[in-house]
Design a binder for these strands. Sequence first.
RNA 1: GCGCCUCUAGCUCAAUGGCAGAGCGUCGGACUCUUAAUCCGCAGGUUCUGGGUUCGAAUCCCAGGGGGCGUACCA
Length: 488
Amino acid sequence: MSDRTVPAASDPAAGAAPGHGPSIPYRFEPDATAAALAAEHGHLEPGTETDQVVTVAGRLMLRRIQGKLGFGTLQDGTGRIQLFAPSATTPDFEGFGALSLGDWIGVRGIVMTTRRGELSVRADEWVLLAEARRQFPDKWHGLTDTETRYRQRYVDLWVTEDSRRTFVLRSRVVSLTRQFLEARGFLEVETPVLHPIPGGALAEPFSTHHNALDQELFLRIAPELYLKRLVVGGFERVFEIGRVFRNEGMSTRHNPEFTMLELYQAYADYHDIMALVEELVAHLATEVCGSTTVAYGDRELDLSAPWRRATMDELITEHTGLEVSVDTPIDELRHECDRLEIPWEDGDGTGKLLLELYEKTVESVLWDPVFVIDYPVEVSPLSRVHRERPGYTERFEAIVAGRELGNAFSELTDPDDQRSRMEAQARAKDAGDSEAMVVDEDYLRALEYGLPPTGGLGIGIDRLVMLLANVHSIRDVVLFPTLRPEQD
RNA sequence: GCGCCUCUAGCUCAAUGGCAGAGCGUCGGACUCUUAAUCCGCAGGUUCUGGGUUCGAAUCCCAGGGGGCGUACCA
């Protein structure tokens, strides 16, 4: 940290006294933004002085002092606007010239253009709002060090325009999703984050401890089981957008905490949910990207509805030539896995082996959106059995750009079937599968009161934002991604 | 977890076993229409940490730490 002289405040309207900390006003009231000024006055001829007085605030990002005439570039939440500061009219001109890049200032003055035509606010009054005691990054190169960008997002957002743009986009996606669902009669709810029994997904949870109850609790891996309890409770269309936590590896696509959209619609099946998903995603793309055709990496992605629907089995056939199903003899499936160098375990049934074959040979090469439908019962403990295909469930995953965007099914409503599936999961857990589920007696009790036919969906919001923002690391769509603690 | 890459001034980067440097920024000075303003000057370093090799290490070796990418697991 370098020594800095602190400019004196000059704005009498703010009631500020000169000096150090105490001179910083307690409030400030801007009445214009950079973007609004550009929109309203972008057409002004060079050398114009309007009689309109505005107040702007933001950080000083560039500064050009030329003797008795100063120029500054102020950046606010909407963009940049030039400040024009002649010594003749600028209070405490010396102090203005001594401002550092990164200082927050408030400026009041007329809207004008310079002789070169640059739209500016003349600094007829100004006040320091916060001192940047730490130096801002290079004004031209910005921040390239990803670690600093993630750890000091408060700096990154100022100097990396794409970063700010991405997080604004993320906010819009979440907001538009809420509007979309509310317009269709969905009720937004909040269910517990602390779960006595982790459930609703196959994943390893974080555990914690409640002192007063002297009880182990788990950070939720999915809100699913609580949301379906609410459908039992008569909320026929519910959704939740919330953080879930999975104690697994980290990568460009995995953060230990991430945001999930889950929704449940009574009387609907997975076909209805597919229609909802393709409509939602196309709507979001149109709103935030201006088109259902979006750039992702060096390719284009066509998100327009309808999306292709294909069963997992037919996709395996398409990509490997293998004619397989859950009825294929297990030795044959094991042999094919061996041939394709896909590891398997003794406990894996034909359903699990099919899933492995699909994931290793098909998923990553799918590009435009595909609803991969009909997953084996064995790997889908919360999905209802298929109405026509024994051994399968009415489940789909939406795959976009080779990655799972969402997972959905006709929900399993039968309490007896659900019990036996949970017991099978519990046996797997006892056998050492740390991601398997355990039996949730209260959830089974809820099902015994009656869950109507229901379609359910989970979408990873982070990954959806990655697609729409055209970024390739989840850390670029999470404001404060999980990192190891900094060393001193 | 494992593999590969990486870490030098506030930021962006040089220095390829031989005096740790530049640009921007900071600080001081000049300059009344600049646009990454320009010009002059000063300051700024545990080269991630700890060992080792060497006459000599930012550089080579070993161990540790942070980060990135890939992979495994998954959304």
